[in-house]
Design a binder for these strands. Structure first.
Lengths: 342, 342
DNA sequence: CTGTTAGCGCGTTCAG
DNA sequence: CTGAACGCGCTAACAG
């Protein structure tokens, strides 16, 4: 910057004002400065600027698993929205570990990010978030809290209910659910949606039909818990995979192992469909989560929070997309059931 | 920091030295300082530190599509390795657009990242990288250059050759290849591997068997180019999907549409297998790319480059993993062919 | 073993 | 409309 000021024969102050357009500068001087900027290949130093402005134009992005397709989509949405506003995301992956979440957040605070986009690790104590909010604006993604704060996620309860009701309409009376780790809010919501659907249909909620109150995070674990349920004589006629894609894989493993075919022997619907699920035989029926839009909206929420620190906190719920395959038992090309228009 | 020094009754210099362990401090003073740090909830300011040290402990991570599963894995590997060294990645997604690459890199330089991990957008002019290297250490990932610089990617040529040779061993004489956008170095290498395999087998290399010298980046595009090739009377008996997962999906679409079954009518092997490809019917045969390790090694390379700026540039080639399904025509459970031991 | 001081590169008063 | 001087929080060099 000093170089620029020397070449242009002005003070650094003028250079600053020209570059940022922050006060009127005579046309002649401005031109001289701009030429000098070009000549010297000058580029603002974001560090010095951040220091002086006490605003870094960075945000912390804390997710639990950058490998999961939903999170990957979220990251894309966030990055896009951030870049349009000159904001750079600093990335931290917790791998679902509390300790890594702790150290990552600490590191990000130390780097003075302007805000935090966070997907909490299951089992995070409430105080963690409370303390955090005192220091810095936070927007929760995917896994939502019951506290009043900015957050955006999938409308899981209703979506799951509609999905199960589709099975009910097809005549199923004994429907199992793989829900996974219910410490994760999203998964708890899905379990609730499942239960609501049964209740509305006047069907009994049998505890042995709900799989995975324990941690089920791997494909093998899902398989080992689904197998026994379907090997008995009185087996469910349908199942909803309400955890994550690994869970779905485990279900398919278990059914294949037992020689049960989908949908003839067991109907299957899936909350978290993965890519190319229409290439399966049979095509899978289920929901695609709005990962990209979750990321986008979360970033927007954070930006407006930065501008209006005292605005009312918002919770945004996004609807997933229904993909009608054949694993539910419907013939190919059947349109989406009612309730999925919006 | 001044607060700490006042509470502890020492100079800021001493505080600094205690916190960083950068020179001997008497036990008593150290204790006083540490207590004060706790009392004041002091946390180092990474910005001021970076300014003074002219080292930010951040790196720029520039990838083309955070949604692709290989890149997502790479990001995981990078983040893990970075965090272990107290380094935070700043994320930029180019979406395969030259302009976004340009502005993203500029922004990262402005933030004074210590180094850059880069996957170049197809069609990037050579000078871009040349200019960049003058300013900052760069490690290329996945898409490698022929210039001598630090880079890590998949050993595509050999891997593709072995894959095609597997088809040859199974008796195929007319093998097609979907290669996609050959401006991408990786894809050009795969094409080369395909051609080498044909040559070694003494088979003719027919131009009409190589699909996608033009840009083929979508599922629909792949399908529309594969269809015609297999609808003629003299159709290939096998095909290798050598572009990306969308290409594979397009191939499957096209074959399905024509009523051709895999592997009876057409054998299929895939360079870039996606998740759960063993749940397909038939199970898909092909390679899983070492995304996580690519990221990890790239980060390591960058770190050692930062320590030894004048060391010899390294190129690291990682072997993909062979997954033996049934889409190649082999019966279930056939072990990997020779050449895949390492 | 410890304290004092200068300056990293900027943006912003304040005085001209 | 312009320029000189200050300080953001920290560390390195030097002085004690």
């Amino acid at each position: 910057m000093r170089d620029v000021s020397r070449v242009a024969g002005v003070s650094t102050s003028t250079v600053s004002h020209v570059v940022n357009g922050t006060r009127r500068v005579s046309d002649e001087l401005r031109q001289r400065v701009l030429n000098a900027v070009d000549a010297v290949q000058y580029r603002q130093d974001a560090l010095a600027r951040a220091m002086r402005m006490s605003r870094t134009n960075t945000i912390g992005l804390v997710i639990s698993d950058a490998g999961d397709h939903v999170f990957a989509d979220m990251v894309r949405g966030i990055e896009h929205e951030a870049r349009e506003h000159g904001i750079t995301p600093l990335l931290a992956n917790t791998g679902e570990e509390l300790e890594r979440q702790q150290t990552s957040v600490r590191a990000l605070l130390s780097r003075r990010v302007d805000g935090l986009l966070l997907t909490e690790v299951p089992g995070t104590p409430d105080e963690f978030l409370d303390e955090l909010l005192k220091e810095i604006p936070v927007v929760l993604m995917d896994r939502l809290s019951t506290h009043g704060l900015d957050q955006v996620g999938t409308d899981s309860t209703v979506a799951t209910r509609l999905l199960v009701e589709h099975l009910v309409e097809l005549g199923h009376r004994d429907i199992a659910a793989l829900v996974g780790d219910t410490r994760v809010p999203t998964l708890r919501e899905r379990e609730q949606g499942y239960l609501e659907a049964l209740e509305r249909a006047g069907l009994p909620a049998r505890g042995d039909r709900v799989l995975g109150v324990d941690k089920i995070t791997t494909r093998a674990a899902a398989r080992s818990v689904v197998g026994p349920l379907f090997s008995g004589s009185e087996r469910p006629t349908a199942i909803i995979s309400a955890s994550h894609s690994a869970g779905t894989a485990g279900i398919l493993d278990a059914l294949r192992e037992l020689g049960l075919t989908v949908p003839e022997d067991v109907a299957l619907v899936i909350f978290d469909l993965f890519q190319y699920s229409d290439l399966f035989t049979p095509k899978l029926t289920g929901l695609v989560q709005p990962g990209y839009r979750i990321g986008q909206e979360a970033m927007r929420l954070l930006l407006s929070r930065l501008e209006h620190p005292d605005a009312e906190p918002q919770t945004i719920r996004l609807r997933p997309t229904f993909i009608h395959g054949e694993s539910c038992g419907c013939p190919p090309g059947t349109p989406a059931p009612s309730g999925w228009q919006a």
